[in-house]
Write a protein that binds this DNA or RNA. Sequence first.
DNA 1: TTTAAAGTTCGATAACTATCGAACTTTATG
DNA 2: CATAAAGTTCGATAGTTATCGAACTTTAAA
Lengths: 104, 104
Amino acid sequence: MKATNLAKVFKALSNEHRLELFQLIYSQCQLEESRAQKAGKGCCEGIEKAFTKACGCLDLSRSTISHHFKELQNAGLITCTRQGQTFMCQVNKESVEAVRSFLN
Amino acid sequence: MKATNLAKVFKALSNEHRLELFQLIYSQCQLEESRAQKAGKGCCEGIEKAFTKACGCLDLSRSTISHHFKELQNAGLITCTRQGQTFMCQVNKESVEAVRSFLN
DNA sequence: TTTAAAGTTCGATAACTATCGAACTTTATG
DNA sequence: CATAAAGTTCGATAGTTATCGAACTTTAAA
C-alpha cells in the first residue's frame, strides 16, 4: 500500500469517535469470523444493522455517524451493502493487513 | 493503551508528510537496531542529526518540519534528545507495539 | 567576539474537520 | 395510500491543521 493511502487509513482512525466505531465493527466481525470457522464456514457475512447498532453505542447524531461511516468506507477500511432498510458491514482485511504490516 | 491515546497516535500518522518522516526515522532505527544486535549490543542509540536528515529528504520549510517532529513526539511515537547543535532521535517501541497490537 | 549552523517560536492564512438539526429519500408495513 | 423507520444530504458554525517566512535562541567554530 502506498504512503498516501496508508495516511488515509490513519486519518480515518485519527478521530476518537471514529476509532471507537471501527473497533465496534472490527470486534464484532472477529466474533462472527470465529463463529463461522467453528461452524465450518470459510468466512463471515459481516455484521447486520451496523448503523443502527452504532447509533445505540455512540452519543452522536445520526448525520454525524453517517459521516463517520462514509469516512471509514472512503479509507477502504470497511464495506457496507444495503439490505432493505438497514445495511450489512464488513471489515476490509487487506486494509487492516496493510496497517498491521506497516511496522514490519 | 487507551482509545484516546491510540487516536492521537493515528492522528500523528495521518499526515502524509509526517508519515513519511516517521517511516524515515523508523527504518533507520530498524537498521541501527540490527546492526547493534550483530555487534552484540542490546539496543541502538537512536539516529543522529534526525532533523538535519529530514530537512534533506522532505520538501518542506524547517519550521514545518520542526512542527511535525513535535507532533510525533507529542503522540509518543518518538523521543528526541539534544546533542550539541543537532539532536538524537529514537522510536518509542511501546507506542509502535500499541499500534501493532491494536488489530490483534 | 563575531559569525554561522541548527532549530524554535510567532503570527498569519487557507484549507479541512466534526458536529448539529432540518429536510430529504428510500424501503417496509398497516 | 399513509405512516414510520432507517439513513442521507445540506448548510452552517466552530474548531483544528498545515504551511510559510521572519525573527529569535542556542551551540559551536573562526
